[in-house]
Design a protein around this nucleic acid. Sequence first.
DNA 1: ACCTGAACACCGTTCAAGT
DNA 2: ACCTGAACACCGTTCAAGT
Lengths: 258, 258
Amino acid sequence: MVPREDWNSVPYNMDWNDVPGMPWWRMSKRAHRSARRADALSKARIVEAAIEILDARGEAALTFRALATHLATGSGAIYWHIADRNGLLGAATGDVLARALAKVAKEKEPRVAIRAIALAAFDAIDAHPWAGAHLSREPWHAAVGEIFERIGEWLQPLGVPVHAQFDCASALTNYILGVAGQNAANARTLPRGTDRKAWLKGIASGWIQDDPESRPFLRRVAAQLSEHDDRQQFVAGVDFILAGACVKRNACSAMRSR
Amino acid sequence: MVPREDWNSVPYNMDWNDVPGMPWWRMSKRAHRSARRADALSKARIVEAAIEILDARGEAALTFRALATHLATGSGAIYWHIADRNGLLGAATGDVLARALAKVAKEKEPRVAIRAIALAAFDAIDAHPWAGAHLSREPWHAAVGEIFERIGEWLQPLGVPVHAQFDCASALTNYILGVAGQNAANARTLPRGTDRKAWLKGIASGWIQDDPESRPFLRRVAAQLSEHDDRQQFVAGVDFILAGACVKRNACSAMRSR
DNA sequence: ACCTGAACACCGTTCAAGT
DNA sequence: ACCTGAACACCGTTCAAGT
């Protein structure tokens, strides 16, 4: 049996097989490693566990203690593979969005293609609201660049004038991130199984009741507010931006006043 | 001198002037109160102090301990006037946005009016990024209802078809909140005095460098990305949504495919 | 009623120590 | 190299006690 001092003096890149007197359960580092590889700690495994916790119990439940328990390790071990909590959320967000964007079917029609990309982002964020929250907290995330590129590529074939393409791609990205943040907020405060319609009705009446005579527009659309479909409304917004970027200007009667 | 037990037995709504033996500095509750009113604790004063801290040192600096020190009181005292930290942020956000929206000049031209409202929100959030972060975390905030109403009112005179008005107002609100969240995120990570252009350049090259041959769109607009003006780009997005909501559809060549 | 501040129940993160 | 878990330096919030 080698005393501890000797173990510590073993260079980390040296195979422990070469250390005389090493106990069997420390022998053959590589063999040992590969045997345990399935459940060894790694960034991928940590991110996977984080996603499980985030999806099951929400962003607030992702603590290093909970994660360490879930992985049957110490909280400090996680820091060996990940910089900090924010990095972990970023990696989880990247995973979830990359997976969603990779699944988008190849399209030929520009508008259909853009819709498909936007909806892939929407659906991913709808399924993983914490990812939406992270993206709006960190809009320079690689996933945002991916969305920006994937949408931007289609603007030329769509017929958006060259000078408007950058602004158009930015507007779409901002819009998508805005919806992402909203979805995340809704999911955070509206636990599963809540009556969505009643909840929306409450918000609408809260917005109206301040001054009982005014707010005519909100009054007029209150019914739509509590009954609309988020996904459908999301697409409507995407279409507005695309149509507006194509149009020459002065589409509205009142917009002629340039 | 009245013993403590007697002080405690004084009903809270009873004037302390009526308690025999009350020390002078506790006498004349009303007079005492009005004399100290200027620096007595109140929700308004707490919110005001919170805004000062938020503007000066950012959202992370708003702790109950810092706030209590700033107000020369105990942290528990704040809870007498405010529900919790989130309520405090909400009140501060409401203050800042209500002030900004109240200052918007009356306009006659629909497009100009909508731009003015959107820009008022943009500028308020630009000056108080923490308010933007709060709004995207809590999109049912009264300020969002106000923005929604103020914009919505102009859609009819603008010429947006009735059936599209709700979707249009929602799209604009989502867009504004999206930009709000981004601004907040930028302000959080880009301390004052940082070279904005270099920072944006870094993001752009981070988005591109993954695969050196691909990402043609990003490559094409990289210069615009690092040099664009946020405010101007914000207005461009608003205009896209408005134009798109007015247009009959099929404005783009490739959009004719319904 | 309103205020005080210690105490409570958490956090993320670090780090000496283990293997 | 990689893992452990106690310790540290914070938080928001509560609450018995004061005035």
